[in-house]
Design a binder for these strands. Structure first.
Length: 567
RNA sequence: GCGCGGGUAGUCUAGUGGUAGGACAACGCCCUUCCGAGGCGUUAGCCCGGGUUCAAAUCCCGGCCCGCGCACCA
């Protein structure tokens, strides 16, 4: 086990779930500190991607009905057929293997694979025969309701909930593009072999933003702010670039300004959490690597003990999801986009003659007229036939006239495109921890220190009586309460020597320790110790709240805020 | 899912068939005027199931979990 994982478990950041029953791969519990840290990260994400955008946050069920995933394509492309060699035991994805060996594109069904295996007498590379193909679906399946029930799946991404409720959301934004809808929550993938600690989980936390835009306006009002920002890019041909975002878009390395904008914003967000810039890159998906819904995709990757791992995916999903759901549900999932100037359009229309229709069709006349209006005059050939109430009716020529009219067209209905920055919160949390983990020497002794940014630390302040007896203890408890009430994440600790306690809080990343010492009772001051430098200043208890809130929201040196007590 | 290597206290670790030991951590008391000090004491462990044996942490089989490689990761 790596040193960092050992610490995370020992100190209560996280551990394996169901430990007392032997554990199961792919699930973790967040302990008190890990939970706290992830919550801070979520809140900062909200500031960046909801509050900082024209966006809202919603919350949908984690169980989805089958229809959703048939429409989204997950029911098919999320299901793979595997073939296993009966001799050497090697397992392949059937579609990949068949394409490689026979150059055939096949349906991903057990039957199709079976028939191809038989027809071509396809064998394993070792010469062995394949066993019967088996299906595996990466979605967890469940039943909704009693008895046979309705088939449901645990969502494999939070995004679908947003697409399904698109009509309501677009109404909420008064049908005005662009707008964003975010969701933070759990998703589930029944991974075949979850590995690498917290990197591949079967239940995991996502923060996703679906940013809906006009297909021809994949830009962002604030792109200006970031256009000259230099980023590290690895394109789909494995070519590295260190260029400005503006240039990357101009050279068509990045498909559009909006993706570029979110790359910039993502980098800003990750650096704000304490991700090491030298261990961060953006990598474009190769053509054969992209998900079934994506037309361009960039991953933010960070370098960790496990190598480069993906922590954010920024995908241009085009109109894939909305079109699919529109088609499968029959709902209109378009947005009406007005033109700047209404356009005059000349067109032919059918004008029903009610005085003729009435006597002929009697009660049905009104419906016949309505049907007539829906007919495109350009497509008339011969007599018009209309079906009303299941009955086919022939409409005599004298019942209508065709006129050319001039009409003002004010806009058009479009299916918005969506750009999706999708964040893996568990991996981000882990990466923040790993990049913050450090060792140094204090008074010749090695020290482990978690250099978390002050605003993400799960415990921000530890209040420590210099000696574990009165009156130090009483005063320390009083100050602890005051800080807790003011909203700081504060702990009180009087166990062990003062040095031991400083080390304890260094290891969990607590940025500041407040120490109550003898002088406290002479002049109402305490010391604030800085985790990173171990230096201390002395401040008045009355100034504590103001000083701490300034320190915790910045990278400022504590020496700006009080008399130096210890260098 | 396949192959290789592992699983002893909260953590790390000694223990190759015969009473399971240590370090650190934690807790209590004492001591202590600022960086893992010291003293005394306490808590706490052989992954699970089966087999071999007079006797299993140790040997064998199966499972679970962890690590690595392959495969998988829409």
């Amino acid at each position: 086990m790596s040193e960092i994982m050992e610490m995370l478990i020992r100190r209560g950041f996280l551990w394996q779930s169901f430990e007392i029953y032997g554990g199961i791969a792919g699930f973790i519990d967040y302990g008190p500190l890990g939970n706290g840290l992830r919550r801070r990260i979520e809140n900062i994400w909200r500031e960046f991607f909801v509050i900082g955008e024209r966006a809202v946050e919603i919350d949908c069920p984690t169980i989805g009905i089958e229809e959703v995933y048939i429409a989204s394509g997950h029911a098919t492309s999320f299901t793979d057929v595997a073939i296993e060699c009966s001799e050497c035991g090697k397992v392949y994805r059937a579609d990949h293997y068949i394409k490689e060996k026979l150059g055939l594109e096949i349906d991903e069904s057990v039957e199709a694979v079976k028939s191809v295996l038989e027809e071509f007498n396809l064998k394993c590379e070792c010469g062995g025969k394949f066993k019967d193909p088996e299906k595996f679906n990466l979605m967890f399946e469940t039943k909704i309701g009693p008895g046979k029930g309705k088939r449901g799946y645990l969502r494999p991404e939070t995004a679908q909930g947003i697409f399904i409720s698109f009509r309501r959301l677009s109404d909420y934004f008064r049908d005005k593009l662009p707008f964003g809808v975010a969701q933070i929550g759990r998703s589930y993938r029944n991974e075949i072999s979850p590995r690498q600690g917290v990197i591949r989980l079967r239940e995991f936390n996502q923060a996703e933003l679906e940013y809906f835009v006009h297909p021809e306006e994949k830009t962002h009002p604030e792109f200006e702010k970031y256009k000259s920002k230099i980023v590290k890019l690895l394109d789909k041909n494995n070519v590295e670039h260190e260029i400005s975002l503006k240039e990357a878009v101009e050279k068509d390395i990045i498909k559009n300004e909006l993706i570029a904008y979110f790359i910039a914003k993502t980098e800003e967000f990750l650096l704000n959490l304490g991700i090491d810039k030298s261990k961060l890159r953006f990598r474009q998906h190769k053509d054969d690597e992209r998900a079934h819904y994506a037309c361009d995709c960039w991953d933010a990757e960070v370098l960790t003990n496990y190598g480069w791992i993906e922590i954010v995916g920024i995908a241009d999903r085009g109109c894939y999801d909305l079109s699919k759901h529109s088609k499968h549900s029959g709902e209109d999932l378009t947005v009406f986009v007005p033109y700047k100037e209404p356009i005059k359009v000349k067109k032919k229309v059918i004008v029903p003659e009610m005085s003729k229709l009435g006597p002929i069709f009697k009660k049905k006349a009104k419906k016949v007229a309505e049907e007539l209006k829906n007919i495109d005059p350009e497509k008339i050939s011969g007599k018009i036939k209309i079906i009303v109430e299941g009955e086919e009716l022939e409409v005599p020529d004298e019942c209508y006239s065709i006129k050319e009219v001039e009409e003002m067209v004010h806009g058009e209905k479009i299916i918005p495109h969506v750009i999706e920055p999708s964040f893996g919160l568990d991996r981000i949390t882990y990466a923040v921890l790993e990049h913050s983990f450090d060792k140094d020497f204090v008074d010749g002794e090695e020290r482990k220190v978690l250099r978390l940014k002050r605003w993400v630390a799960p415990v921000q302040i530890a209040v420590l009586p210099l000696l574990s007896k009165e009156p130090f203890v009483g005063k320390a408890k009083e100050i602890t309460l005051k800080l807790k009430k003011a909203g700081f994440f504060t702990e009180y600790d009087d166990s062990g020597s003062i040095g031991r306690r400083y080390r304890r809080y260094d290891e969990i990343g607590t940025p500041f320790c407040i120490t109550i010492d003898h002088q406290t009772f002479e002049d109402n001051t305490v010391t604030i110790r800085d985790r990173d430098t171990t230096s201390q200043i002395r401040v008045k208890i009355d100034d504590l709240l103001i000083v701490l809130s300034q320190l915790l929201n910045s990278d400022k040196d504590i020496k700006e805020f009080g008399e130096i007590f210890r260098e």
